[in-house]
Structures are given as structure tokens and as C-alpha cells.
Design a binder for these strands. Structure first.
Lengths: 242, 242
DNA sequence: TCCATAAAATCTTATCGATATTATTATCAA
DNA sequence: TTGATAATAATATCGATAAGATTTTATGGA
């Protein structure tokens, strides 16, 4: 058994329980989905990238059918656009898109924090949140904006996971995915954190203290402040799409 | 001219006879998608209904490929569950699902009304809203709960369309679809309107007057009150799923 | 020569029917 | 009853073909 074909690589880059990795059956559709999604999120497939299905299938080493099914899923998640007779295109994000998404995120993240503060959040999630906070502080001290951005993103995703509402969690994460690359590109231009760092700490403390009112309000205004930063960065960079 | 032609919004409400949709759609995938979606929403395919792909394909008179692609889209919208080696299953809604969805709807509908009140809503939409309000009044006077429920649903969908945020609109409509059958079934048991009728009027007036603060608050509490009604109906009916 | 139009070639998807794979069920011996 | 094994059923995937749009080429008139 030298070439273990069942060995699954976690391409999403996020932590998964070992059981999940072991059990996850590796179908070609799932494989194509995970690989394409990872490549879109990390920028290997940049916004605007466009290719016919056969090309993508060939690149992934499989036939068109599973690729097509993966693309349909990615389209439903707002990451690609399937243009009839033109192939699949990685979506670019405009200022309007960012406004729309951040406005929704402000409400949904506010709700997520409210729900999290109103329930018993599993201990390991709180510990993970706290770890992210201290690592982010450390990254800022070292001026490591790249790493800080990564931790910022993971904090927001983890918050979504604390709320206990699975649909809310999935929707927040889907929206974060849609703006993931725009976030990264603009922060790289900015070379500075896009938000007040202590907002995250406030949110964390509010959840721990069960202060749903404070928490949700901080989360909401945090996201709306982020929107203003994004708008400013878009203006100053002169980019119409990211 | 981006290729979002495949994202179609049914402006006339949400339900159309399959035959009509069949003619409008050119591809079999779209055809299968629209037909299955309509059948799920109107209850022809009830929650819990389950069938292997070949059966569904045979019923729709096409091969498995387009059916499968339609099912993947429906799964992404939370209407069906694709169970490996078991076929496609129409999702049933539990009390937990209703809680999750209504909580999110409360925030998103609140935001939608806030945005609608803060902008110039196209005249024909306001007229349509007003028409729905007076028709709903008339239906109540005649004790036509069935018709009232239909108008209530259409009001909520139309509100989503006034907000100007296309993602917000799509998400609200998707959530309304997921609870559509549950709504209908429970109202039929109840034989009475599930919410204070004048809430709708208040929301309409707030949008017209540009009072985003009032409008969003009424929309939010309206939905949360609806959640309580649903919970009560579920308890009294003894149903664990709808 | 230049432009408009028609015809042909090309390219890509949409769809099909068939096959390989694999989970589930049935069967049977210990 | 249990565990192994065979049979079954349904999917996952493939390769091929048809349909349809786009682009290119050919053609004829000014």
C-alpha cells in the first residue's frame, strides 16, 4: 500500500476533525470542488480567469462531468459564473458587490454574536478564539500584516461557528468567501490593519460575558467600519474590480 | 452584459404553471429545475418524498444528467437533500429549522426594509405592494385564509425586491422558499392569520415615508412574532416536522 | 478595393447511453 | 446469531454525439 489513494489533502486550509478527513469519501466531484474553491480563494485562479470546461477538466485530470457538477456548486456559492458557451469565469468583486455583501454581513455577524453570547459556546471554540486574538496581537507587533489578515479572517469565520445556527454559520462563511480575495488584495495595498484590533477583543469578551447587546452592536459596527475602509482603499487604489 | 442570464427572477410572484416555465426555458436543466422547484413549493412533491435519479429523470422525460444538475442546484438552495446511493429527498422542516430560518429572516427583512426606505423604490413596486395590502384586507373580510396566506407570502417576497441589494433579495427569497410549505401547512391547521395584518401596512408606510428606523424594527418584530406563532402551531399540532 | 451579407467551419456546451464503482441487501454456512 | 460472501441497486464517471452559437471565409455589388 505505498500509494495510498485515499489520503485526503485538506485543500481548504481550515482545520477539520481527523474523523471527517478519514471518513470523507473522495469522489471526483468533491475533489474538483475543493481544489477549484481553494485555488479561487488563494488567488491561483484570479478574478476574471475564464476557461472552457474541457480545459479545466484536463487540468484536473478528469472528465467534464464531475467538473461541471463542481462548477454548478461553486456558482451557487457566488464564486464563479457559468457563461453559456463561454466557459466558467471566476467572479470579480466590484465596489457594489462589496457594499452589498458587507451590509448583509453586518447584520448576520451581529446576529451570530448575539446568539453566541446567549448560549454556552463549546470551550475549545472559546480557547481557539482567544488564541487567534493573541496571535493577531503578536503579528501586529511584528508588522506582519499578511499574517494578521489571515488571523483576522479566521476570527470572523470562527465567530460564525460559535452561534449555534447552522444556516447562519454557512451563510456568513459563504459571504466571507466571496470577499476573501478582495480583502486580501486591498489589505496588501494598504499595508495596515483594516479595522480596530480591539473590536475583536470586545466581541470575544461580550460573548464570554453573555452580553449579547454589546457584542452584536460591536460586530455590526465593526463590519460597517470595514466597509468604509474597503471603499476608501478601492478609491485610492483606483481599482474598479478586485 | 455579464452572463447572469441563468439567474432568473420570476417577477410575477413565485409560482407559475410548469407548462409555462417549460416553454420559457430552453435547456433541460432549467426545465427540470423549474418543474421540480415548483412541485416542491406547491407540495406535489411533499417533504420526505424520496426517489432515485433514474425515476425522476423518467418522470421528467429526460436523461439523468440534466436532472442531476438541477438537483444539485436545488440542494444548494436547501430544498432537497442528495443522499449518496439513496436518491434525492425533499427536505422536511423541523422546529429547529424554522427557528434558524426565522431568526435570520428577522434580520435580513429588517435590513431590506431599511434599505428600501432609504432609497427611491420604483413606482410600480410600490403600487404592487399597495394592491397586495388591499387584496389581503379583502381576503380577511371574506375569511379566505388560503388566499390571505398567498398574499402574505407575496408581500414578503415583494418587500425583498424593493431593497435594491440583489444578494439580500436572493437570500431572503431563498429562505422564504425553504419555509414556504411549512407556512402553508401550519396556517391551514390554524385557520387564522399568523400575524397582525397592520404590520404589513406599517412597513409599507414606513418605506413610503422613508422612515428606515421604524420600518426595519416593525419588519424584524413582525418576523419574530411569526416565529412564536409557528412554534405554537407546531406544539399544538403535535407535528415534529412539516 | 471595400463593405455587407451569406455560407461554412469551428468551437463549446448540452445531453445521452454505457460502464465502472461501490454501498446496501440478501444469502448461507458455522 | 454471526460473519463472510454474493447479488443487487444506484451512483459516479466516462466518451460520444447533437445542437447551437460564434467566428471565419467566401461572395457579390458599389
Amino acid at each position: 500500500m505505498s500509494g495510498n489513494c485515499n489520503l485526503r489533502v485538506n485543500l481548504s486550509g481550515f482545520w477539520m476533525p481527523p474523523a471527517m478527513l478519514a471518513k470523507a469519501k473522495s469522489t471526483r466531484v468533491d475533489n474538483a470542488y475543493e481544489r477549484l474553491k481553494a485555488e479561487i480563494l488563494n488567488g491561483e485562479l484570479p478574478p476574471g480567469f475564464q476557461a472552457p470546461e474541457p480545459d479545466i477538466a484536463a487540468r484536473l485530470g478528469m472528465s467534464r462531468t464531475p467538473v461541471r457538477e463542481a462548477l454548478i456548486r461553486l456558482e451557487a456559492e457566488g464564486l464563479v459564473d457559468l457563461i453559456p458557451r463561454r466557459g466558467a469565469k471566476v467572479l470579480a468583486i466590484s465596489q457594489k458587490d462589496i457594499c452589498e455583501i458587507f451590509e448583509i454581513l453586518a447584520e448576520l455577524e451581529g446576529l451570530a454574536v448575539k446568539k453566541a453570547a446567549g448560549r454556552e459556546v463549546p470551550c475549545f471554540l472559546m480557547q481557539e478564539l482567544e488564541k487567534l486574538l493573541s496571535e493577531a496581537d503578536a503579528a501586529l507587533l511584528q508588522d506582519d500584516i499578511e499574517h494578521w489578515a489571515e488571523l483576522d479572517d479566521r476570527f470572523h469565520r470562527l465567530i460564525a461557528q460559535t452561534c449555534g445556527n447552522t444556516r447562519l454559520e454557512a451563510e456568513v462563511i459563504s459571504l466571507l468567501n466571496q470577499v476573501h480575495r478582495a480583502n486580501r488584495v486591498l489589505l496588501r495595498l494598504n499595508r495596515a490593519p483594516a479595522s480596530r484590533a480591539d473590536d475583536h477583543r470586545k466581541i470575544f469578551e461580550a460573548i464570554r460575558a453573555g452580553r449579547d447587546d454589546i457584542g452584536s452592536e460591536v460586530a455590526r459596527s465593526h463590519r460597517l467600519a470595514g466597509l468604509e475602509t474597503m471603499k476608501r482603499l478601492l478609491q485610492s487604489s483606483g481599482l474598479s474590480q478586485v
